[in-house]
Design a protein around this nucleic acid. Structure first.
Lengths: 189, 189
DNA sequence: AATAAAAATTAAGATATCTTAAGAAATGAA
DNA sequence: TTCATTTCTTAAGATATCTTAATTTTTATT
């Protein structure tokens, strides 16, 4: 567990064992069962969750009562509702475990404290945030440039393991396609 | 000019006059004429541009040769192609002044140097990046939740000054609507 | 003011994607 | 194994949005 996060952090900044221990002591581990919620609509997202193992989804419920998935996250990725977490405002989204998922989590207060006491962490999260932003911009690009079918093949090629671990209707939702239409698309080719 | 960026930075971190002077000395001012390019496709985006005054757009050219606008930016906002700037890879997008635009710009090397020498700036840009990410997530939300017409009214209400300063076909492009269809939508209501 | 260029509108027909509803298949629980 | 629940598929009709092409309006240039 400590090894995993150490390896992850060291992708971005060099941290010695003492620093790792210090950060590690601020992280809390928790396991969520399949379908358990990490966050519910209308509550402030108090934590940033680092996923050690598992899969989660972020989604909101639209006017018609349908779930719309905005994000999946797996091992070595962060899950939070950024806007809610940063601004401490109620979230419009849910975060839920798709499989049993083990995380390490940090509160905003803890994180702010770490920033002040350890400038290296400020750098670490500056870089992590840049990467999130880039990932997000890329996602928008995909939607801007591709139609439903192309998005599906792109996603299926890029992240084949997801196709196995996540039910198809969730993938459809993430790709902004109705499950019925995705079925048609798959048949067509 | 210095006053403006001082006010802007002080929204996020406290900087004294010496610090401001130090940063300011690293920034280069430049004015772009209407239609002049800050960045062209296939070149690495070397700078992060802080807009003092003006309007710019980021766009790419799609398969059919149409311009697709992904971002507008105005006074007190940053313009860059994040992925290209951070990873030093060729950009797929253009950045162009819509009006005469005055900016202060920073190279990546300068910025990295500033981070190392002044942890406060690491914080400043950590926060700025968080805000960009949040702005981006919000934009995605709008597209996820609203249909063309609603996007237009939302945009028109939220940013009425844009409607005046930017030609309608560019707004259509940003909203992912064809100019013809936007015309229809406006007529309908 | 006259002309050229750019931007906006209109309308008809085409297409991608959704909606609804029902049934089939797969998975999980007893 | 059986039953119940969840997920996936199929198909017909509906709708949002695009395409093309022509026309009008606005803005910029001489």
């Amino acid at each position: 567990m400590k090894e995993q996060i150490k390896r992850y952090f060291n992708r971005y900044v060099d941290l010695n064992d003492i620093e790792i221990d210090m950060i590690y002591s601020k992280l809390t581990a928790k396991t969520f069962q399949k379908k358990e919620f990490l966050l519910k609509e209308n509550t402030v997202c108090r934590y940033n969750y680092f996923i050690l193992k598992g899969v989660i989804r972020s989604f909101y419920i639209d006017k018609k009562g349908h779930e719309k998935i905005t994000q999946f996250a797996i091992d070595n990725w962060w899950a939070t509702n950024m806007e809610s977490f940063i601004n401490e405002t109620p979230s419009t989204q849910y975060i839920q475990a798709i499989e049993e998922t083990t995380v390490l989590y940090l509160s905003k207060e803890t994180l702010d404290l770490l920033y002040t006491e350890h400038p290296k962490l400020e750098r670490l999260f500056r870089i992590i945030t840049e990467n999130m932003l880039i990932a997000n911009l890329r996602k928008s690009d995909v939607f801007l440039q591709m139609r439903s079918k192309e998005r599906y093949t792109f996603f299926a090629e890029k992240l084949p393991n997801f196709i196995q671990r996540v039910p198809q209707y969730m993938i459809a939702s993430y790709l902004e396609i109705t499950p019925e239409y995705l079925s048609e698309l798959k048949k067509a080719k």
